[in-house]
């Protein structure tokens, strides 16, 4: 279970502190698939960072009773000067898992071939996403954070990810941020709509999508 209690997040900006999350209360239980919708800048990714633990909330608490992944296909934690292999080694080291077992999987899944021995700096963004996704799959988590992951990679790779994630790991909890309604509809059983730093929960996709479209129609100021 992951429990957020009265979580707020503020960032300093030139025009004073800006509150991105305004008192979020949220519980995610084992196996739930939670879809998050909202406009750009609404706080979706901030929420992911706070849940993932990359950033502490300004106030409020985050309790984690299950292991939470880093955002899938997220390349930020990788170093551009290191090779794909070295980045995999780093992840294996900090999670204390055997590197050799994982290497075969990453080779096979990413299909990057000789590029695995090149620094990430020379990868295309699609290649980086392939590597990142493959490495993400080498560590077993109870809850996966998925922030717009399917926007990357070509169709065949996307299909592969889908199988790996939604078929093989269907019993895991997932938190999915996406603008693609088709994608959310089929996978999630809870939906959160972001609006002015707060969330509204819906069980039914069509309902949340209706509201989301209304939101999109409103003029937006950041």
């Amino acid at each position: 279970m992951i429990q957020l209690t009265d979580v707020t997040k503020q960032y300093p900006t030139k025009s004073g502190p800006r509150t991105i999350l305004k008192g979020i209360n949220l519980t995610i239980r084992k196996g739930e698939h939670v879809g998050i919708l909202g406009r750009n800048g609404a706080g979706k990714s901030t929420l992911v960072r706070v849940i993932g633990g990359a950033e502490p909330p300004t106030t409020g608490t985050v309790e984690r009773e299950m292991s939470v992944s880093w955002p899938l296909a997220f390349t930020g934690g990788f170093h551009a000067k290191l090779t794909g292999i070295d980045n995999l080694r780093f992840i294996c080291r900090i999670y204390g898992v055997d590197f050799h077992d994982r290497l075969d999987f990453v080779k096979d899944f990413s299909e990057l071939g000789a590029y695995l021995y090149e620094p990430l700096g020379v990868y295309s963004s699609g290649m980086r996403a392939r590597l990142a996704f493959a490495i993400s799959m080498t560590i077993d988590f109870d809850c996966y954070l998925i922030d717009e992951v399917m926007a990357v990679g070509d169709d065949s790779f996307r299909e592969k990810c889908k199988v790996e994630l939604f078929e093989k790991r269907a019993d895991k909890a997932m938190l999915i941020v996406s603008h693609s309604h088709r994608y959310l509809k089929g996978t999630c059983n809870r939906f959160l709509l972001f609006r002015d730093g707060t969330i509204q929960e819906y069980d039914d996709f069509d309902e949340v999508y209706e509201k989301y479209k209304e939101l999109l129609a409103e003029p937006q100021t950041f």
């Binding site: 299950m66 780093f90 080291r93 204390g96």
Partner: peptide
């Protein structure tokens, strides 16, 4: 820190994780 998500990691366990992380960061 443990992967099986127990929050009761003993001090010794924490030390092991700490060592692992420092080792990984040093090499990086």
């Amino acid at each position: 820190n443990s992967l099986n998500s127990s929050s009761e990691g003993s001090f010794r366990q924490s030390l092991v994780v700490q060592g692992r992380v420092l080792h990984a960061l040093l090499i990086r």
